[in-house]
Write a protein that binds this DNA or RNA. Structure first.
Lengths: 231, 231
DNA sequence: CGACTTTTTGAAACGAGTCAAGTGCAGTGG
DNA sequence: CCACTGCACTTGACTCGTTTCAAAAAGTCG
């Protein structure tokens, strides 16, 4: 529950239009508006938990600004990051009663929340809303299927190349990729250690496939080469 | 298209009730019946392709008897099996216009087919049908999320133990697990080579965790031990 | 039974992990 | 303005688990 921090919440329906590039989920965003559902803005600081694994699903979330990681843990601390969520992305939508991954802010992050129950109600009346919910889940499944191929088959270098292309596609601004996550997060996403990620990036740098301006500001110099490497 | 082999198709609405243990997807099965949709039975022989990656999605499938693997390939032949589909399971349901994995019969397999378009139509009228479609996709996503954790984090032994528990849960009959797939399929599912799978099974046998009667008939002697190992 | 495929087992090689320094960068305060 | 501090990142040397390659054993089917 968020009631203990209600002072931090500001109701804001205008946020909907901000920084949401054209994607399939826009339909869902529109639904949020059309159904006159109450969307609420909330801010999380770096590394703050947004929801926990097995927590009940009271809200559905959309990133407005910042970035989010969702992950599963094994009992000894090994972590698999399932996805990174960037501005415009919906996350935390579940069919069942509880979340199956933990969500944390990668950096200071602003999200819009909507009550899951109100979405349910809308979906029971409007088939288009029901379709939109299905669409969001189907999009996550598509990503998960691609990621299983990466985790089950690809080499370290192929994984890092695929990661860079994904980030380039999703958050490239002016040919520069500004990564919001550290090497450990990248490693836990790709099923590698942070050292292996670092070595692969260094190797790509040596081969003039990319340039750095600081460890997290990357310019891709040879996109086609990356595509070839990513297999 | 199946028109060239229409002679092999037999329309059969009674198949619905056969060998479908209680699961979430039963709702979907019921929907198939209630909406008076035409379900058709079809038979595939061992290793026969049911649909291919990027093929357009004309049908949704349900295993009646046998078993199915769905997978993605890399250009050099590396393969990641996403799921095994057993009697009662729905597969091949896509939100988008084309399949994202290839489906093949593991053994001689009987499936029921339903036209995707007729499901779409039903979903546009009945919100319960729309919910059922979402539910099927959400179930696949849940499996994919668990499998990413396995592929990204777990050791060979942990993967094999988890696999055995999954198969035990899904197809155990009289304490015996009769695997419909070969070691290579298991390896491609777990992100391991067939040799590594074989070694892990041998090791579990040496530790009296399981017994064999033939390579594919497995009796689990110590289920708790397997749970501990699977992490 | 004999031919083929699948599975097991062994030995060697390799890719990624682990452990341990060392470097660089951002923020803090003298 | 520049040392100081604390992380994040890089790099090196070594280890280890899994893969690769090869051959034997077991299982399946005509």
């Amino acid at each position: 529950m968020l009631s203990h921090s209600i002072a931090n919440i500001e109701t804001n329906t205008a946020f909907a239009k901000a920084r949401c590039p054209a994607r399939p989920v826009d339909q869902f965003v529109n639904v949020m508006g059309l159904a006159s559902l109450v969307a609420t803005a909330f801010r999380y600081q770096k590394d703050e938990e947004i929801f926990g694994e097995d927590e009940s699903t009271e809200y559905v979330y959309q990133v407005v600004r910042g970035a989010v990681r969702t992950y599963k843990l094994l009992s000894d601390g090994r972590r698999q990051i399932g996805s990174f969520h960037l501005p415009g992305d919906i996350f935390g939508l579940e069919y069942g009663p509880s979340h199956r991954l933990t969500a944390e802010a990668l950096v200071e992050t602003e999200v819009r929340l909507i009550q899951r129950r109100s979405l349910e109600n809308a979906a029971n009346v409007d088939v288009q809303v029901a379709r939109s919910l299905w669409n969001v889940t189907a999009g996550e499944l598509r990503h998960a299927e691609d990621h299983m191929l990466l985790l089950g088959c690809k080499t370290a270098m192929e994984r890092v190349a695929a990661f860079l292309l994904e980030m380039d596609r999703r958050l490239a601004a002016a040919s520069m990729v500004a990564l919001p996550m550290c090497r450990r997060d990248i490693g836990d996403y790709l099923g590698l250690t942070l050292e292996t990620v670092s070595r692969a990036l260094s190797q790509l740098h040596d081969q003039h496939v990319l340039d750095f301006s600081g460890a997290r500001q990357i310019v891709i110099r040879n996109r086609q080469r990356l595509r070839d490497i990513s297999a």
